[in-house]
């Protein structure tokens, strides 16, 4: 056992853990921060991604003993940080993933959202190719990545006060034009066959 001094989501904590434990094990099994997921335990899938001093790292292949003095951010830390900075609700990345349907099973998404957060912190206006490259260390098996990329583009568009690009499946209206509210904001689909207007 070893006593580690860690800074996780702004909290300084001391944790006793076996010397060979990874950061992921300490986060999940000592601190109860189960938002970081274990998909492969080999650094292949990216579900365990956390931020270390603002940079995405794979916590399943990072020894916890090497994290002293570093600032660790997990998915649980995003919303509190956003609130503390004067924002409301979840981090815009989290809100956009929700609004765009990017969360299917949700298992890969904590890591995915942290990679996206790190990208946008470093580069607020990335191209689509840069977004895909930045997220290419995070495997998703549900979405085909389309709605994930759309979510990141929604964050970028809204930060710039611009309208996000509308998806192919929404002919004649943009479902992401206005922020989430309890009342539906998008215009309803009519009952006729939309194939007629489905120009890709």
């Amino acid at each position: 056992m070893r006593v580690l001094s860690l800074d996780v989501n702004g909290d300084r904590t001391e944790v006793a853990a076996p010397a060979h434990w990874t950061l992921l094990e300490v986060l999940r099994y000592r601190l109860g921060l189960t938002g970081s997921k274990q998909g492969c335990d080999k650094g292949d899938c990216g579900a365990c991604t956390v931020l270390m001093d603002e940079k995405p790292v794979l916590s399943c292949i990072t020894l916890a003993g090497m994290c002293g003095g570093r600032r660790i951010t997990t998915i649980e830390g995003l919303m509190p940080a956003h609130l503390a900075a004067g924002g409301s609700g979840p981090d815009p990345v989290q809100a956009a993933f929700d609004r765009c349907g990017a969360l299917q099973c949700g298992f890969c998404q904590p890591g995915m959202m942290l990679s996206a957060r790190a990208l946008l912190n470093e580069k607020p206006h990335p191209t689509r190719a840069e977004i895909k490259a930045a997220l290419s260390g995070n495997l998703c098996r549900c979405t085909g990545y389309t709605q994930i990329v759309q979510a990141v583009e929604l964050v970028i568009a809204e930060a710039a006060g611009a309208e996000p690009p509308a998806p192919a499946w929404a002919p004649g209206y943009n479902p992401w034009k206005s922020p989430r509210s309890s009342a539906p904001s998008a215009s309803p689909r009519s009952d006729r066959d939309h194939a007629n207007e489905a120009e890709g």
């Binding site: 649980e76 995003l78 979840p90 929700d98 609004r99 349907g101 969360l103 949700g106 539906p184």
Partner: peptide, 19 residues
């Protein structure tokens, strides 16, 4: 018929969803 966010989208987005 409308694009509604999912019932559990924010639980998943914030790491609160328990697997």
């Amino acid at each position: 018929g409308r694009a509604q966010p999912k019932i559990d989208g924010l639980a998943k987005a914030t790491g609160a969803a328990l697997y």
